[in-house]
Amino acid sequence: MIYGIGTDVCDIRRITAALERQGERFAAKVLGDAELAIWRTRSARWPKRGMRYLATRFSAKEAFSKAVGMGMRMPMTWRSCEILNEKSGKPVIVLHGELKAWFEAQGLTAHVTVTDETDYAASFVVVERQNPPASS
């Protein structure tokens, strides 16, 4: 059963401006540890590809927060939600800490897709309820 759907379109120029103003602090605020390592590698080799990576992750986290219906408030935080890739390239949502515990207690699973084109990054997330929430 569908629990929630979220979508987000992000202007990559806005992310570029934030990064120029705040430096790596912006990326460290938005990205989890695994994402940050990938971003650093991509940015060092291909700066535009690194920027697109950051923008798609920003967008996907916004879409996820909408799909679960809580926005960016606890237990949802930028760093507790990572958008990583399986070996096949398929993007997956990896949760940590309180967010992971809450998500699992609700019996939820999530599906994510991300894309980028020139000036925009977009994401779509579907969250499903697999099991009824745990009793209180």
Score class of each variant (00 low, 15 high):
G4N: 01
C10N: 03
S135H: 10
V92Q: 11
Y53K: 01
V112N: 00
I93K: 05
C10M: 13
A55F: 05
V94D: 08
E24V: 14
H111M: 09
W102T: 09
R79D: 03
T77D: 08
Y3T: 12
V112A: 04
G89T: 08
Q130H: 08
K29C: 11
K87S: 14
L19Y: 07
A67D: 02
D116W: 07
A18P: 00
P47L: 07
S136V: 15
H111R: 12
P91L: 06
S59T: 03
A63Y: 02
L19S: 14
T113S: 15
F124T: 12
E128T: 09
R129T: 09
V9S: 08
P133A: 13
V68I: 15
Q130K: 15
R129L: 03
L84H: 03
E117F: 06
I12V: 15
P75A: 10
E98F: 03
T56Q: 06
D11I: 00
I12N: 00
A34V: 14
R73C: 10
D11N: 15
R14N: 09
K29R: 15
D119L: 12
A101R: 13
V125C: 01
R57Y: 02
M51N: 06
L31H: 06
V68K: 07
M70I: 13
A121E: 07
G23F: 03
D33K: 11
W46S: 13
E82L: 07
A67M: 06
W46I: 10
S65M: 06
L36M: 13
Q130C: 14
I38P: 01
G107T: 08
K29I: 09
Y53W: 09
N131K: 15
I83L: 12
S136L: 14
F103Y: 11
E35F: 02
E117K: 02
F64C: 01
T118P: 01
Y120N: 00
V9G: 03
G97M: 11
A28F: 00
L54W: 07
Q106T: 11
A121C: 07
E35G: 03
T41H: 13
V127F: 07
P47F: 00
D11R: 09
S136G: 11
A110K: 00
R73T: 14
L95G: 04
L54V: 01
Y3L: 13
V114D: 05
V114T: 13
Q106C: 14
I12L: 08
L108G: 04
D8A: 03
H96R: 12
M70G: 09
A37P: 01
R14W: 06
S123F: 07
G89P: 00
E62G: 02
V126S: 05
I38N: 02
K100S: 08
E24K: 05
F58E: 02
L54E: 04
S65F: 05
T77H: 00
E24P: 05
F26W: 06
I83F: 05
S135I: 12
M1G: 14
V125D: 03
R45I: 13
D116I: 10
V30W: 02
K29S: 12
A55P: 02
G89R: 04
T41W: 04
M76Y: 03
T118Q: 10
L19A: 12
A17T: 14
T77N: 00
E20S: 11
S136N: 08
G89W: 08
G71L: 02
E98P: 07
Y53T: 00
E62Y: 04
D11V: 03
F26D: 01
R45W: 04
T109G: 10
E62C: 05
